[in-house]
């Protein structure tokens, strides 16, 4: 490790870290927001489940670099625009979470769903106030996978010149210089752990009943 280099470039490294975090977080959150209603549809109208999950599986087979490159042509954005990266990763996040959300809703006990209906909840209200909260643990687990792989995927965008921690890899390689690469890997791992911890904490805080110990 060349500590001098790290010291001299600390401002830029922090910028890259923040940019990396922003790209991954935006894609994860937007993906979640889009996937919730889609997953609910796939759960409520069972005939939409196979086509939706098949489409999701197909989207998964597209390599990220290919998507980063092709999206500007479709969206009319510039190739350097970070929006391409956010959209591409959002696509992956949605593709992963649609099935997770649908399966999570299916994991809510039938008895609970039925008693909500029996007490006069309308479908949407039952979904939002009863079923989604109970589905949080399963959705949270899926979100962890999506967030962590998003953090890893963002760095690929460095090949197109979108600035984030991945830029340290390409630069280090061109300069035959290990320090930036090592720093990039470590910070990327750190970010993944951070995201993971935040999601785990959020899941726990929003499901206090999951920790309740049965009392006599």
């Amino acid at each position: 490790m060349n500590w001098d280099w790290l010291g001299r470039n600390s401002d830029r490294i922090v910028d890259l870290f923040v940019q990396h975090a922003w790209l991954a977080a935006a894609a994860t959150l937007v993906g979640l927001v889009v996937a919730l209603p889609l997953g609910a549809v796939a759960f409520r109208y069972r005939w939409t489940y196979p086509p939706l999950t098949t489409l999701a599986g197909l989207l998964y087979t597209i390599p990220s670099l290919a998507l980063f490159v092709v999206l500007p042509g479709i969206l009319g954005t510039r190739i350097l625009d970070p929006v391409n990266v956010v959209i591409a990763l959002t696509v992956y996040t949605v593709a992963l979470l649609v099935r997770v959300v649908a399966d999570a809703l299916a994991s809510v006990p039938e008895a609970v769903r039925q008693s909500a209906t029996a007490m006069g909840y309308r479908p949407v209200r039952s979904l939002v106030t009863v079923q989604f909260p109970l589905a949080v643990p399963v959705i949270g687990a899926g979100l962890r996978v999506a967030a962590v792989s998003n953090v890893s995927l963002v760095s690929v965008a460095a090949l197109l010149g979108v600035e984030q921690l991945g830029s340290l890899f390409t630069e280090g390689f061109q300069l035959n210089f290990f320090t930036p690469i090592a720093a990039g890997i470590l910070l990327s791992l750190l970010l993944a752990v951070l995201f993971d911890v935040v999601i785990v904490l959020a899941t726990r805080l929003s499901t206090p009943w999951a920790r309740a110990v049965p009392s006599r």
């Binding site: 996978v145 962590v148 792989s149 953090v151 890893s152 760095s155 690929v156 460095a158 090949l159 921690l165 991945g166 340290l168 890899f169 390409t170 280090g172 390689f173 035959n176 290990f178 690469i181 090592a182 990039g184 890997i185 990327s188 791992l189 993944a192 752990v193």
Partner: peptide, 14 residues
Amino acid sequence: RALPTLGLLTVLTL
């Protein structure tokens, strides 16, 4: 899953 592939590639090649 958390390890950035690009980082791994560049460091191993160097």
